[in-house]
Amino acid sequence: MQVSGEIQEPFDLIRLSLSERVMVKLRGDRQLSGVLHAYDGHMNMILSDVEETVMIVDPVPEGVKPSIRVAKRQIEMLYVRGDGVILVSPPQRE
């Protein structure tokens, strides 16, 4: 029954990522990378040392290939509301 350690339900994966750096994909072409300190059942989260990446597609005239800009910013401590979360990816293990 016990397959890999303590992972039995999806939230276990997030619990094991506590105090580790996670990647969070959000609605609105946003992505965060930060250290996870708290979360709840809504996937509201508190992250520290966060880098936010926003993909911005600049409007261009018809027929022209759209250019994509990437805006990054750093935030020391951040609460993220769970309703915008698409996925949480645990730290890469080598």
Binding site: H37, M77, Y79, V80, D83
Partner: peptide, 28 residues
């Protein structure tokens, strides 16, 4: 209204990270 919030930037100095993680483990 809570539902229109995307982020809240918090004062890091006012938070106890150890306490936060312990409380999360307990609650989960």
């Amino acid at each position: 209204r809570g539902s229109v919030i995307r982020y809240v930037q918090l004062p890091a100095s006012a938070m106890d990270i150890q306490l936060l993680e312990d409380a999360t483990r307990r609650e989960s």
